[in-house]
Amino acid sequence: MDATTKFALLAVLILGAVIACARPLGKYIADVMEGRNTFASRIGGPLERLIYRLCGTDPSREMTWSHYAIALLVFNLLGALVVYGLQRLQPWLPLNPQHLAGVSADSSFNTAVAFVTNTDWQGYSGESTMSYLTQMAGLTVQNYLSAATGLAVALVLIRGFIRHCADRVGNFWVDITRASLYLLLPLSIVLALALASQGVIQNLDSYKTATTIEKLTFDNPKTDADGSPLKDDKGNAVTEPATTQAQTLPMGPVASQESIKELGTNGGGFFNANSAHPYENPTTLSNVLEIAAIFLIPFALTYAFGRMVGDSRQGWALMVAMLVLFAVLAATAFVSEQTGNPLFAQNGVDSQATSMQSGGNMEGKETRFGIAASALFAAATTATSCGAVNGMHDSMMPMGGFVPLFLMQLGELTPGGVGTGIYTILLFAILGVFIAGLMIGRTPEYLGKKIEAREMKLASIFILTTPMVVLVGTAIGVVTLGGQAGVSNPGAHGFSEILYAFTSAGNNNGSAFAGLSANTEFYNLGLGIAMWLGRFWPIVAALAIGGSLASKKRIPVTEGTMPTHGPLFITLLIGTILLIGVLNYVPALALGPVVEHFMLFQGR
């Protein structure tokens, strides 16, 4: 079987399974989130009511969109404070068998914002930085709550289309409780067990030491009497050669974090190498399960949306648009990686795929996954807001690296993160019908709601906030010494590293290009601010649009209403998404991966 067939089969297998699950899971999501009497609510109902009683919440009391937004913001701030405190205080807290030190203030700030915003950007190395308590009570808890927050925002926007002359959009506390209790928790338990069956570890043991067969010689950093690293006149670490046969094997409660990391489209790995680490993603099957888990809820939400608005064709139309964009870009990544580096052939190196070798570009990829599964994972993790990686994106070919960048820059809506994907594509749908309305001279409407000036102003805030955060952040990174200091490659590739970091932070993805030294005060602060603004400003705009639509009358469908479930609308939607993405980012992309691609193929 050739490599292209392998890639196509893998993609069809995973996407086919996910789409087959979309209908039953989407129906389940719609039922539990709308509070219908289901099997799950009969089992979990007493616990749900107990949570409301303990928190003093009246589930029947709904909120205006602004009250909903403030509840969401304050709740997330409190979450950030807990994650920040756990990191700073971990030397004095339990479940720290390695006696890891407290995390620095700037890194704690960055990580706290990263995990409450569903970004899960990691400037640190998990196994040498975070205690088990911080991983479980801080990071994993936020993996659930940030995904539930995204789903809650999507529900408000969907209710905007359903409700008629209403000033209330739902109850934030009810929405996040139901999302966590009935959706994220049960699915995570099932996936954690499946991953554990493949070899993903789950324990609270201290780290193990293994004796290697071969001796390893390495440069050991020298330290002074206080244990601080010694540096020479140029600021480089002073090292001495050392030899060892001891290898430390990190342990931890990985499976329970790994499952919600994928299902909640969070992406923050227990270990530094993320899903490239054999304890996080040991086998071909675990890799397939992880890719499927990333897609599962976002695709199911398209069906849930269609069901909630009373016309499932509306949901299928959004899903088709997502699939078309994803398929084209994922295939581009695969072709680029399988083609490999043209300079290898010039130097007499055979990089063709044969029965004896994978060929193409294997740098930065795990041999147990190969090119097809690595390219598909890279596309899946950036088409959603996941950000987990099973290979190093920095080592991809220029156009291979272009794909994850562009998928994030499109707004992560193919199919996007939990909740974020559906509300982002709905915003583009609103923009699409507005553009179509301008072309044919009719008042634009979508799902029975008129789209007017207020919605368009709010949609503009939604769509323009992230590009502003990304492009201004990248510009500051490029021109300041603090930004330049983290770059490990000169020229176009170095520019891509900075652009990728701010794209990942601003779009709440969290994957890294891996060539950037980001655990510095500059990047911890800059990316932290980018993650917060890129998450919560669009959320506020989406909630406001939900509130605005809910307050409007539903107008009946007439012969003059543009159908929003057919090929014409799907084409319009894809065109709108591409147009906005291209207009925002082409100049920046031209300076990074595009120029690098042309330089490479000119032999430079």
């Binding site: 602004s66 404070l81 203030a105 700037d106 704690s108 602060l525 919560f536 509130g547």
Partner: peptide, 30 residues
Amino acid sequence: MDAIYLTILLMLLLATIGLVLGIDRIGEDR
């Protein structure tokens, strides 16, 4: 250092709540 980063976090929250109130105000003017 903690005070600096916690203040930045608070400022980010206040700026975002400011956006909520600002948008709400536009709604009243409509």
